[in-house]
Design a protein around this nucleic acid. Structure first.
Lengths: 201, 201
DNA sequence: CCGTTAACGGAACTACAGTCCCATTAAGGA
DNA sequence: TCCTTAATGGGACTGTAGTTCCGTTAACGG
């Protein structure tokens, strides 16, 4: 019994995911109804229910699709330059109407659906691993301590930006991006992000 | 036409919110069904639909209730001590079964419901304002630059903790709390969180 | 203590999300 | 090209979330 990923099946998936992206950008996660999604994708309602079965699953699939086209890390020669590029990329992504809506939805769906949460973790693990070499290189250049935890530094850049996205307590712009990068660099240089560092007294 | 906030009405509200908290802690946001909620609260289904009307509204009301009993800021004499106390409080809150589930739900609901998003912003604005004096005092003591943005520093403490809560990419424990506090202090001392600071070259 | 009426709650009703069945279509292999 | 069967999709079915109606209960004022 062979699998059939080609031809029609692929077209259906592409059509559904495109429609889902449109609907998320237009009206957000709560309005993503599978019946309406099927209509807009010009696909049978049964097909959508059979292949995905829930809104969370559609959103998770959409994330997989997007993860495939993630941008490569920067290499500007300094840690600050690299992390600033990363931070600005994150801000551009989160403020983009389609991608921003998608990320909000993903984060929302992941809080109640374990499969979506797993997809989300994979996504961030991959993304963080892609950018971690920026820190490794900075260690090689002697910019930061040798036992600096690369992943921790990358997370430190994104964290304030996601915090703003979710709480809406401050602007999410390039200034915020630059500040996030700068804070991460200063902390890393001070040795805050060394492996196993916690209560440093 | 007088309002009637007392007696039975208050009992109904308390009963519904308690049941909602239970259900969130047990099975999460997605499983919060208004019909079942009414049954568990021993309240008429009609009442729940009339007074709240949606899951997001119940969750928002629950947050208001909780905001009323938020803890006062610490005053340990040093910025690091104060921020560490704040960070540990945030971690305790987010890892508590009831409160953690509630916050996840709030954040999820806020991504698609504007009223919930507004309640969330109010909550964080209040909370951040409560802790901002820690930074103001640190300025007075000369620990950090005079034009340091107090709210920005407080947000910087919480951000990595919320990032971990949502992405699940790293542990959310006391070590993370201490590191978040330390990073915020180091960055603040270096002048990263000065008002209007963005691209500091 | 009594009357007014805001708020509650049971029950019937409605609409629609999600499922099931089965005929139709088209991938992929020989 | 033909055959097998994975995958699709229309349509009927069903369970249940959410609404409406209206009688009942109990706050609050006098």
């Amino acid at each position: 019994m062979p699998e059939r990923p080609g031809g029609r099946t692929a077209r259906v998936r592409a059509s559904v995911l495109r429609a889902a992206g449109d609907m998320l950008a237009e009206r957000g996660f709560a309005a993503l109804d599978l019946g309406e999604l099927a209509t807009r994708a010009e696909v049978g309602r049964t097909t959508v229910y059979r292949r995905w079965g829930s809104v969370a699953a559609v959103v998770a699939d959409l994330l997989l699709e997007m993860a495939a086209e993630s941008l490569p890390r920067a290499d500007t020669g300094t840690l600050l330059g690299d992390l600033r590029a990363n931070a600005r990329l994150v801000v551009r992504t989160l403020t983009d109407p389609r991608q921003g809506a998608l990320f909000r939805s993903m984060l929302a769906a992941a809080t109640s659906d374990e499969a979506t949460a797993a997809a989300l973790r994979r996504f961030y693990t991959t993304r963080i691993a892609e950018w971690a070499p920026c820190v490794t290189d900075a260690v090689a250049r002697g910019e930061v301590p040798a036992d600096t935890d690369p992943e921790e530094v990358i997370r430190a850049v994104s964290a304030p930006l996601y915090y703003r996205l979710l709480t809406g307590t401050a602007e999410l712009d390039e200034t915020a991006a630059d500040r996030a990068a700068e804070a991460a660099v200063v902390a890393a240089k001070a040795g805050v992000h060394r492996r196993g560092s916690g209560s440093p007294e």
